[in-house]
Computed example of a mutant assay.
Amino acid sequence: MKGFRHWKWHLDEMYVKIGGEMHYLWRAVDQEGEVLESYVTKTRDKVAALAFIKKALKRHGNAGTINTDGLRSYGAAMDELGNREKQEIGRWANNRVENSHLPFRRRERAMARFRQMKTLQKFASVHASLHNHFASERHLLDRQTYKLHRSAALAEWQSLAA
């Protein structure tokens, strides 16, 4: 994955309440909608944004462009990393990552919320990898190919779970 320099990343943060206290789940999504990185913090400032972006860059290499919302913490973190020219800020440019929050929120409601920050971090990373594994872009595939991909994913999952 480190070889794809032309990739477009979408970064966003979402709030999650744990015991009545706000925590922030930072997420990075690529141009295809796959979750690259999830990171939980108690704050939504430059330090948290910098730690998240460094973690994503270390694991996945550099991106061609990075779409963010208007949060100024992203700009400050990008300045410190020297990636400010790669950052794009647009009103609807970050819809890819905003829509990727929806399956997470559905699952969170079904679980009746979280009780610890550590549990949230574990769940976010596991949920992302499972969602990436099983969620293929149905609208781009014909039925036969979709069923083939789905059965291959299920067979791989069953071999891992056994």
Rank of each mutant, 00 (worst) to 15 (best):
G3R: 00
T119Q: 13
G33P: 03
T119H: 14
A110L: 12
H10F: 01
T65E: 00
K147V: 04
A49Y: 08
E13A: 12
K55Q: 05
E13R: 07
R115A: 08
M1R: 03
G70N: 09
I89Q: 01
R150T: 15
D30P: 03
S38N: 15
G20P: 06
A124W: 04
E21R: 15
A152E: 09
S151G: 07
Y24W: 15
V47E: 14
H101T: 04
M22R: 14
T119L: 13
R59H: 10
L140Q: 14
G3I: 02
L25R: 03
A93V: 03
A161R: 10
K54T: 01
K46G: 06
L57V: 14
T68G: 03
R96G: 02
Q144L: 10
H149F: 00
G64F: 01
A49C: 15
H10R: 00
E32P: 05
K147Y: 09
R138A: 10
L25Q: 06
S73Q: 04
E37I: 06
N132K: 04
F52W: 06
A51Q: 04
H6A: 05
H23M: 07
L57P: 05
E21H: 15
L102V: 08
D45L: 14
R84D: 08
M117Q: 13
S100T: 11
R59K: 14
K2E: 10
A48M: 13
H23W: 03
H139S: 11
G3Q: 07
G61T: 12
K147N: 13
T68R: 01
Q87H: 13
A49W: 13
N62M: 12
A124D: 05
A51T: 02
G82S: 11
V40C: 14
F4L: 12
Q121N: 07
L36S: 01
H133K: 14
K54P: 04
I18D: 10
K58A: 15
F4T: 00
T145C: 05
L57T: 03
H149C: 04
R44Q: 14
M22V: 13
M111V: 07
R59D: 01
H149M: 03
Y74D: 04
V126I: 12
Q121P: 02
H6N: 03
I89C: 00
L11A: 02
D30I: 11
K55C: 11
N99S: 10
L141N: 02
L130V: 07
